[in-house]
């Protein structure tokens, strides 16, 4: 007698876990124009983050000569800044009008 296991039918359970839906939040209203605004640059630990923001800043200054710039550098590798240096990070955010985050990847 031949048995063909491949033809056996299986009723199988789902391996994919359920997850509660996250409460969603919208993003912040944009600024109409960068003229005269202070742009913050956030750099994480990756090597390219800082040079990328330098180039963006240079080009922004060319287009918007009156815009100001400010940099913030990560505290700990790969850990959200808000968890490691909350007060300092929040203070910096308050002092800028918009932020460009460079992740280096």
């Amino acid at each position: 007698m031949k048995t063909n296991i491949a033809n056996t039918n299986y009723e199988v359970l789902n391996p994919w876990a359920e997850a509660d839906p996250k409460p969603l939040q919208g993003i912040t209203a944009r600024i109409a124009d960068l003229t005269g605004k202070k742009i913050g640059f956030y750099c994480n630990s990756k090597r390219a983050a800082y040079p990328v923001t330098q180039v963006i800043a240079e080009k922004l200054k060319t287009r918007f000569p009156t815009c100001e710039t400010s940099w913030y550098f990560f505290t700990r590798v790969s850990i959200p800044e808000i968890e490691t240096n909350k007060d300092k990070f929040e203070e910096w955010i308050k002092g800028v009008d918009a932020v460009v985050g460079a992740v280096g990847d």
């Binding site: 912040t28 913050g40 800044e81 955010i93 918009a98 932020v99 992740v103 990847d105």
Partner: peptide, 23 residues
């Protein structure tokens, strides 16, 4: 990206600049 989300949560418009492979 999480840091950019943190900025948005604090009412500042933000954008992350990423390599195209990380979209």
């Amino acid at each position: 990206m999480y840091d950019v989300v943190s900025v948005e949560e604090r009412n500042r418009p933000a954008v992350a600049v990423v390599n195209e492979g990380f979209a």
